[in-house]
Amino acid sequence: MTALNPRQKAAHVIISLGADVASGIFKHLKEDDIEKVTYEITRQDVVMPRLSEQVVEEFYGLCVAQKVYLEGGVSYAKNVLEKAFGVQQGTALLDRVTKTMRTKAFEFIRKADYKNLMNMIINEHPQTIALILSYARADQASAIISELPMEVGLDVIERIAKMDRTSPGIIRQVEHILESRFAAVEAVDLLDVGGINYIAEIINNIDRGKEKMIFDELNIRDPKLSEEIRKRMFVFED
């Protein structure tokens, strides 16, 4: 396919859908996005049928990928997409959708003051705290982990470091509950999930005294994990 930027691809899809459908789509777009897409549409003097067909096929694939991902989770989506589009294209579609969904999930907590966030999650199970902090900003997560009881903080650190993929259904459920709690609080300050790199960045922002205590305990509980986190921390510092 000829290299097209996202706005050019959007223009091809809009043209292919026709004026009636396009007008309905425009109602859901921001003014700035409408202007950009409209500009690209006006530049399409000649629409190449094969190119438009390829763009629409890609768009359709992404729509299907997002639908099955949200309805059935990662494993189900992977199975459906690979059967529908083949292993290579199915995997690529799933990767694009999961990255997009990650940036959207828990967006409201990244705008919150860490103290408000901590008050909301302090009594949750460590696995739930780990999931939420995996979507928080690193400075928020660092501040919260620093103020958690040592045993709970270590448990959360381990769970974030070992976290891989979580069911979209569980993420939506936790996100909905947490967002409802924030909605009830008046003083909210309106801004890779988990893994070794992320927890290394978090601990890099924790004061050295607390950091030493964390590693002293982590060396006892999981020496290999402790060493791996230390290695990644040096990378971030460099």
Rank of each mutant, 00 (worst) to 15 (best):
M1S: 13
T2F: 09
A3Q: 15
L4V: 05
L4S: 11
R7A: 13
Q8V: 00
A10K: 01
V13S: 05
V13C: 05
S16P: 06
L17F: 01
D20G: 14
D20T: 09
G24E: 13
F26Y: 08
K30V: 01
D33E: 14
V55Q: 01
V56Q: 06
E57K: 07
E58A: 08
F59H: 10
F59G: 09
G61I: 00
V64T: 06
A65L: 05
Q66F: 00
Y69H: 10
Y69L: 03
Y76V: 11
K78F: 04
E82P: 02
V87S: 13
Q88D: 15
G90H: 05
T91H: 12
R96N: 11
V97Y: 02
T103Q: 14
K104Y: 12
F106A: 10
E107N: 14
E107S: 15
R110V: 06
K111P: 07
K115L: 07
M120S: 15
I121H: 04
I122Y: 06
I122M: 06
E124V: 02
L131T: 13
L133H: 00
Q140F: 00
S142P: 06
I145K: 02
E147I: 10
M150N: 15
V152I: 07
D155W: 04
G169E: 09
I170Y: 10
Q173N: 15
V174C: 07
H176V: 08
S180M: 11
R181V: 07
A183V: 04
A184P: 08
V193H: 13
Y198D: 10
I202T: 00
D207R: 03
R208G: 14
G209D: 07
K210Y: 11
K210P: 11
K210L: 15
D216W: 01
E217S: 15
N219I: 02
R221L: 08
P223A: 10
K224I: 14
L225F: 00
L225T: 01
L225M: 10
S226E: 07
F234Q: 13
V235Q: 12
